[in-house]
Design a protein around this nucleic acid. Structure first.
Lengths: 335, 335
DNA sequence: CACCCCCTTGGAACTAGTTCCATCCTAGCA
DNA sequence: TGCTAGGATGGAACTAGTTCCAAGGGGGTG
């Protein structure tokens, strides 16, 4: 059996409290005693039990993160920011991957019921009002990433502004028939809904600002994925009056659009301009024009906000990080 | 303060043990008592403390995973397999991202010292002999993924066979000048070393089997990344006798090769055939011929092996999953 | 010389579960 | 009716830390 703090105390001929104080670098131990205790610890190959420590302190030094589809490049990049910042503070990161709506609820419920984490990060998921109450009652601090919710701290971007930026860019290039491809307009409680919807809002506002007509046939929605976007883009390009530019609510979907253009032998950007969103790693490779958002930073910043909450501070207001248009090949000037 | 098991026992007028038995679905409780206890639990909004439970049981129901560069698509896919399998069994996944060699050692040391996880998964990292001893002494079960080490269970593939497969395919297409791009041939203790090296071994064996000369100028090594591979590929393509095919040790590197071909206006596959490794998500999009390995399954299977170890079974032997050649546009028959 | 202060130390109590032994009770059987 | 087996139950002891109060002791001061 592994040595315990009591074994160390006995062998070193000191009290329990003294060993504990040595462990915690308390100044209330004489140098001589500290040396002796440390020697005994080494001799017994003593490893303090983190789990007992957590229990006694009522803390786990662990943060849980619930993310939908954590294989999506944008989510991975946020997780990287989260992991880096947590690890730097000695915290552990527990991840939950949500790929179905049921799992979303289940994960949240478990996060509330268990006390296996000191705090919770929600990526692209907002708690329902009842869930928010449960979180508050469980005294489980939460920070949102990529979403907003009444009264909850979070780190997000101005998706409307991002959509506006992308669309204005296409308008400035001379495009008049601009289509949009985004996630399904379903239940606002499912994944990622708000960002795609807000990006579309920005798209619509930009069109309106340029006095261009809103054509409902130019707004398509489908499951977030390359393949689905490819199908939608093909439909758009087969319209009697096909769009000359497509703004996709994510780079992944923009990739589907590029595939569709390839399918139909439409040169990009000459016959079709494409703009995505996120600026994931491959966007540069593809020469994809996109709206960059600080993904790594969003995770890092969310952790900082969570630490604030954990230190007992009042919930900070939701924050918005800046977005930026990155112009590449798929939307070069050509008219 | 939250209700404890003692509060429930007091209010329900039963003993501690009975409440514990209800919690653990023990059959040794009468239906009536169980009902009463459950009612009181609901009334008091009782949440069992996972952390106290972990402490009492000496288990954490948590598995730690140390992965280098967890943003790499192949690693993410493995993590997805790990997460899915762990979650299905009520386990939690703690992830550590290693992006520098120092961090590797640090993470391993911490995993051994702390008892915050019941088991450890190492992706693309093998413990050094001294680390293996420490793990054994700490009674921390380990399963390796994508590597092998003497006496440790693991899930990997036959990288040599994979390299052979890719290269034979190129030979069968009529290529005679076939180059290889892989990770650095540095210290075997750093990341991912073995897989790239073994793939090169397979490459060399396939060339030898076809009685083709081994040309050292055709073997290039650089940091794992698109950009680095692009530079190496450009060098290759500028040789007096440039290769007509390049086998890259990963799809990411193959993407760099494709970029280089684009830079030099070399049509693929007509002027240059390219084969990658892993079959990550974008490979299909790019039409990249590659060697597919079961990434998700490797994570899932590793977790199963870890559960075996946790149940006290003897360390199972290392396992190998099958690889498969996926032929796409970048290596179509053209000669 | 007595008093006081403060540095150092010891250890009981506490955290919230599980485990297991002792005990009670009841039904079945002789 | 008495005995017994076995299901149901209660609760002390245990897990390995932290916390905090009480107390020892040495040195400085009036």
């Amino acid at each position: 059996m592994a040595a315990t703090i009591r074994d160390v105390a006995r062998v070193a001929g000191v009290g329990l409290g003294t060993v504990s104080r040595v462990l915690n670098n308390s100044p209330l131990v004489s140098a001589a005693t500290r040396q002796r205790v440390l020697a005994v610890m080494a001799e017994l190959r003593y490893n303090p039990s983190q789990i007992a420590r957590n229990f006694a302190l009522g803390k786990t030094l662990t943060v849980a993160t619930i993310a939908p589809f954590f294989t999506r490049p944008s989510v991975v990049e946020r997780l990287r920011g989260i992991e880096a910042t947590l690890t730097a503070s000695g915290y552990h990161l527990v991840v939950f991957n949500v790929e179905a709506v049921e799992r979303r609820d289940e994960c949240l419920r478990e996060a509330v019921r268990n006390d296996r984490a000191d705090g919770l990060l929600l990526v692209s998921l907002a708690p329902r009002p009842d869930e928010a109450v449960a979180l508050r009652e469980a005294h489980l601090p939460v920070v949102l990433i990529d979403t907003c919710a009444e009264g909850l701290p979070g780190v997000s971007i101005d998706d409307v502004a991002g959509g506006h930026l992308a669309t204005s860019h296409l308008i400035a290039l001379g495009h008049r028939r601009i289509a949009f491809i985004g996630d399904p307009e379903t239940d606002p409680l499912t994944f990622n809904f708000t960002s795609s919807r807000d990006r579309m809002l920005g798209y619509q506002q930009a069109l309106a600002a340029a006095k261009l007509p809103l054509n409902p046939a130019y707004e398509r929605h489908g499951l977030h994925g390359r393949y689905e976007a490819r199908v939608l883009a093909r439909e758009l390009l087969h319209l009697p009056e096909p769009p000359t530019a497509i703004f996709a609510a994510s780079d992944t979907q923009a990739m589907g659009v590029l595939e569709a253009a390839r399918d139909l032998h439409l040169p990009v950007p000459e016959a079709l301009a494409v703009v995505g969103f996120d600026d994931i790693d491959i966007a540069e490779y593809l020469g994809l024009t996109t709206v960059r958002q600080p993904l790594f930073e969003s995770g890092a910043r969310a952790v900082e906000l969570l630490f604030l909450l954990l230190s007992g501070a009042a919930p900070p207001p939701a924050e918005r990080l800046p977005v930026e248009l990155v112009v590449r090949r798929t939307s070069m000037k050509n008219r």
